[in-house]
Amino acid sequence: MITARQSEIAMVVAVMRDGDSGVLQVLPPCGRCREFLHQIDDRNLDARVVLGPETISTLAELLPERQARQV
Rank of each mutant, 00 (worst) to 15 (best):
residue 68 A to C: 03
residue 17 R to Y: 09
residue 44 N to M: 04
residue 8 E to W: 01
residue 31 G to A: 05
residue 63 L to K: 07
residue 69 R to W: 09
residue 49 V to D: 04
residue 5 R to W: 08
residue 4 A to P: 04
residue 47 A to E: 02
residue 64 P to C: 04
residue 54 E to L: 07
residue 20 D to N: 11
residue 6 Q to F: 10
residue 49 V to E: 02
residue 43 R to H: 13
residue 3 T to D: 15
residue 51 L to E: 13
residue 11 M to I: 09
residue 14 A to Q: 15
residue 69 R to F: 01
residue 53 P to S: 09
residue 27 L to H: 12
residue 24 L to P: 08
residue 49 V to Q: 06
residue 22 G to H: 11
residue 35 E to P: 00
residue 36 F to V: 11
residue 15 V to N: 08
residue 30 C to I: 07
residue 51 L to Y: 02
residue 21 S to H: 01
residue 23 V to S: 05
residue 22 G to W: 11
residue 59 L to Y: 11
residue 71 V to R: 14
residue 1 M to P: 07
residue 68 A to G: 02
residue 30 C to Q: 13
residue 57 S to G: 06
residue 41 D to N: 15
residue 29 P to A: 00
residue 33 C to D: 11
residue 18 D to L: 08
residue 10 A to H: 09
residue 3 T to Q: 15
residue 28 P to Y: 04
residue 34 R to N: 07
residue 32 R to F: 13
residue 53 P to D: 12
residue 51 L to N: 12
residue 13 V to D: 05
residue 50 V to M: 11
residue 61 E to D: 15
residue 18 D to Y: 03
residue 46 D to P: 05
residue 52 G to T: 11
residue 63 L to I: 00
residue 64 P to Y: 06
residue 12 V to A: 14
residue 25 Q to R: 13
residue 57 S to N: 10
residue 65 E to L: 03
residue 49 V to W: 02
residue 57 S to Y: 00
residue 70 Q to I: 05
residue 70 Q to A: 14
residue 20 D to Y: 03
